[in-house]
């Protein structure tokens, strides 16, 4: 192995911290922080998936929450039938079955919607992927049997041999290892011949077609891989929250995922992980700050305003700042400092 670059060191230290901190939180009796890091890591997996498209393919998909939702419902629906009966062919607590279902369903959804969406370019691509995302949202919303708008509680988590996802630390470690694998897959993928075609098409599609690449096919495969990774994240998210609802597929969730990728820097391995970490941390801090403001204002106004839910407002402003002024996201900033 060659010497690590500055970015390499940052990646290593950051990933080590993610490996070490949650067990420490657990042993020092702070399960809240274990939950926080689990959510962070699960979303980071989805962000890594989206990053393949956005950072390396230049394809701004605004519908990736749909894949997360599909992955989560692939846990919830079989578990629901295993508990309450009906639909025997799908009823199961088996983790492998649910995972296979999550991957197959998200891959299929990606294949069908991608085949259509990739016929368009730029802002049209963004709109059509968003429209497909909303379609999936309304689909799950209309399924009254699974709670519709109210969502569905998962009574039994995915059953796997040897390990139990009921243990928060075990669940965290599964998520963490998955993230490392996802990062490795992405890294290998984008540097392969396939990845070069994908990046070439991002830079100059006409040139790539003229060279002899059917870029549409390559982009479609990237879309399926990206969607499947997000679907996998959904499988974990369902097991983590044990509650699933159409809200998981809402377009604002897709937007958040996109922001994580852009915030962290779209074309590095660590970028999306850094982005989702900062996103989750800022979300917590801003909720705290808004709550604190609320506390200050309460004696003056005579009631609570519930400002906590408005944490999006300062957050949105920060994001606009990042998009406008920090090219290449936080990793871009790091790279330039390193020079």
């Amino acid at each position: 192995m060659g010497r690590l670059s500055a970015i390499g060191w940052v990646t290593l230290v950051f990933m080590l911290a993610l490996a070490i901190l949650p067990p420490i939180f657990m042993w020092t009796g702070q399960p809240f922080y274990v939950d926080l890091t689990t959510r962070l890591v699960v979303l980071a997996i989805a962000a890594v998936g989206l990053n393949i498209l956005l950072g390396f393919g230049g394809l701004v998909s605004f519908g990736h929450a749909a894949f997360i939702g599909i992955g989560a419902y692939a846990v919830g629906i079989p578990a629901y039938h295993a508990t309450w009966g009906g639909m025997d062919f799908i009823a199961s607590y088996n983790g492998f079955f649910q995972l296979a279902l999550a991957l197959a369903a998200s891959a299929l959804f990606a294949l069908v919607t991608g085949a259509i969406a990739l016929r368009t370019k730029g802002v049209y691509f963004l709109m059509i992927t968003m429209a497909f995302g909303q379609m999936a949202y309304y689909f799950f919303l209309s399924l009254d049997i699974y709670g519709g708008d109210d969502g569905l509680t998962i009574d039994v988590r995915s059953e796997l041999p040897l390990i139990s996802l009921d243990n928060p630390l075990t669940l965290y470690l599964v998520a963490y290892v998955s993230l490392v694998v996802a990062m490795f897959i992405k890294h290998t993928l984008v540097n392969s011949r396939f990845g070069m075609v994908l990046q070439g098409a991002k830079g100059n599609n006409e040139r790539m077609v003229t060279l002899g690449f059917n870029t549409y096919k390559y982009q479609l495969v990237a879309y399926v891989i990206s969607g499947s990774i997000a679907g996998y994240a959904g499988f974990l998210l369902g097991n983590f929250t044990t509650f699933i609802s159409p809200d998981m597929l809402d377009w604002t969730r897709s937007g958040e995922l996109m922001f994580m990728v852009i915030l962290g820097g779209a074309s590095t391995v660590l970028g999306p992980v850094l982005g989702s970490s900062i996103f989750i941390l800022i979300e917590e801090v801003l909720k705290g700050v808004m709550g604190w403001f609320d506390g200050l204002l309460e004696p003056l106004i005579g009631r609570e305003l519930g400002l906590e839910v408005y944490w999006h407002l300062p957050f949105g402003l920060m994001l606009i700042f990042v998009v406008l002024f920090v090219r290449g996201g936080l990793m871009g900033l790091l790279k330039r400092r390193g020079k």
Binding site: T188, N191, R193, M196, F213, Y218
Partner: peptide, 11 residues
């Protein structure tokens, strides 16, 4: 070019 493993720059 549906080859996903080997780094292209090392071929």
């Amino acid at each position: 070019s549906f080859r996903f493993l080997k780094p292209a720059r090392k071929i």
